[in-house]
Design a protein around this nucleic acid. Structure first.
Length: 292
DNA sequence: AAATTTTGCAACCGCCTGAGG
DNA sequence: CCCTCAGGCGGTTGCAAAATT
């Protein structure tokens, strides 16, 4: 969908304020809504390039945009700002979103601070369209302990596997030596993205952290810090360990049992690109067996 | 190929907070 | 204090594109 594709259908908003002869009210009466046009984008970009951002209502009026200040701010921050990243979220970014959401909840702007170039809106959309979708398919409340366990023990390790498998010699991460203790402040630096799988301790897995720079490689992460990659370097060996361990861990931590309230919505979920296509059939069956 | 359904995401809405008068 | 306003945030909606029937 082109962001500026349906400009002709944009409507003019007549606000509830009473009619007035002055320019301000006239401006209010002519407020536009809906998708932004290329021309509006251009006006906004050029105005900000010249005068800077902020004072959004003033900006909207003086730039000649028939938009609310809020609308201008949103358009700039979520779309026009030069450092806004476009395109699919990487495995690393998805991992960070899951990890940070487990700690911060729906505080999208806080989460976005750890993902340079990604907006709170984009992260929120990702969570709603991808993550909550999986919860629906499993007939589990996305906020339930059971679903959080699925994320923690199945989805997040799988994302790490994707990082490991990526052909890039580096996935923008630095590993902190495992003998360095983790602290809460480790992950709150706005310029870095740090994660730890604390609960994975239960599965005899190591803690690790991911920092946002470019001087490490994923093999180092998997081999040296996960501690569950096989001697032959096969991550799959590690995944089996995770899955076997997690099956019991899930049951022990509120994961739905056969008598519980969790049942799959239908049989199609296995063939439905579960978890964005990152699950193998074997893993899906294993998860399903754990559920039943 | 057409109709229908689903998905993804840009944009809006309403509420909250803090600054300034 | 109280009021007003701007900015910020999370939740929700609308709709074009993509997928499915």
């Amino acid at each position: 969908m082109s962001p500026s594709s349906s400009s002709s259908s944009s409507s003019l908003k007549k606000t509830s304020t009473s009619c007035s002869e002055d320019e301000g009210d006239h401006h209010q009466q002519q407020l536009r809504r809906g998708p932004w046009t290329i021309e509006e984008d251009s006006v906004l970009v050029h105005y900000i390039a010249r005068h800077g951002e902020g004072r959004w209502n003033f900006l909207a009026k003086h730039a000649g945009l028939r938009r609310t200040g809020k609308s201008c701010r949103l358009r700039w921050l979520n779309y026009l700002k030069p450092d806004v990243k476009r395109g699919n979220l990487t495995a690393e970014e998805q991992f960070l979103i899951l990890e940070l959401h487990s700690k911060l909840g729906n505080r999208w702007s806080k989460i976005a601070q750890h993902l340079p170039g990604r907006t709170d809106n984009e992260i929120k959309n990702y969570w709603r369209t991808r993550v909550q979708k999986q919860a629906r398919q499993l007939n589990i409340d996305a906020n339930s302990a059971a679903f959080k366990n699925i994320l923690r023990y199945f989805w997040m390790p799988r994302l790490v596997q994707k990082m490991e498998e990526s052909t890039s010699p580096c996935f923008s991460s630095t590993v902190i030596p495992r003998n360095q203790p983790l602290t809460k402040t480790d992950y709150v630096d706005g310029n870095s993205c740090v994660s730890s799988l604390q609960h994975v301790d239960n599965m005899k897995m190591s803690q690790f952290e991911i920092f946002g720079n470019n001087d490490c490689n994923s093999n180092a992460l998997a081999k040296d810090w996960y501690g569950y990659v096989g001697d032959n370097g096969s991550y799959c060996h590690g995944m089996e360990t995770i899955n076997m361990a997690s099956t019991s861990a899930l049951v022990g931590e509120g994961f739905p049992t056969p008598a519980g309230d969790c049942h799959l919505a239908d049989d199609n979920w296995v063939n439905d690109g579960f978890l964005d296509g990152i699950w193998s059939m074997g893993e899906l069956w294993e998860l399903r067996n754990a559920l039943h």
